[in-house]
């Protein structure tokens, strides 16, 4: 076997290895242009429709005292024990003004507004603005809340 054949095999193998890297780079590139932000909530945004929205969702208490209580998902919702809270929870472990739920162009966002026991989304205590949708379970005090379409 001539040295030339060995050289060709050697270069071909190295070329294929680098081709693998190039293909991966291509996949990553198309991955970037294909990936839509997955954090976008599926909820329609009532504010954008103008007038009375057709299908407003609800914020429902699914566990804890007052289970079954609900408020329509409109504008800004203050969750807490205060009488003027939008969702008035009868929960000894909730602060008076516990959390704020509001919507932006992409969906609903929850924010803890200085509560004592914290606001949890899917069991994780939130420390910043957190996007929520109908798949997430929000815990405030000993109550669990859910968005419903």
């Amino acid at each position: 076997m001539s040295t030339l054949v060995f050289a060709i095999v050697k270069v071909a193998f190295l070329g294929l290895l680098w081709l693998f890297i190039a293909v991966i780079a291509g996949v990553i590139r198309s991955d970037i242009s294909n990936t839509r932000p997955t954090d976008v909530a599926v909820q329609p945004n009532p504010k954008r429709r103008g007038g009375v929205p057709r299908d407003v969702g609800r914020l429902v208490v699914i566990a804890g005292k007052g289970s079954g209580d609900a408020v329509p998902l409109l504008g800004e919702i203050i969750i807490g024990r205060a009488a003027d809270a939008t969702l008035d929870l009868a929960d000894d472990f909730a602060s008076n003004r516990h959390a704020r739920l509001f919507s932006d162009a992409q969906g609903w966002v929850i924010e803890d507004i200085g509560s004592t026991n914290g606001t949890y989304v899917n069991g994780v205590r939130i420390t910043e603005l957190t996007r929520v949708d109908s798949r997430d379970i929000i815990r405030v005090g000993r109550s669990q809340l859910k968005l419903e379409a």
Binding site: G64, R81, A82, F93, A94, N122, I137, R139, G141, Q144
Partner: peptide, 18 residues
Amino acid sequence: AEVVVDLADENTVLLPAV
């Protein structure tokens, strides 16, 4: 989705009602 957790043993503080 996260399963609904049992809240009985959660570390929470009882708040005095205002």
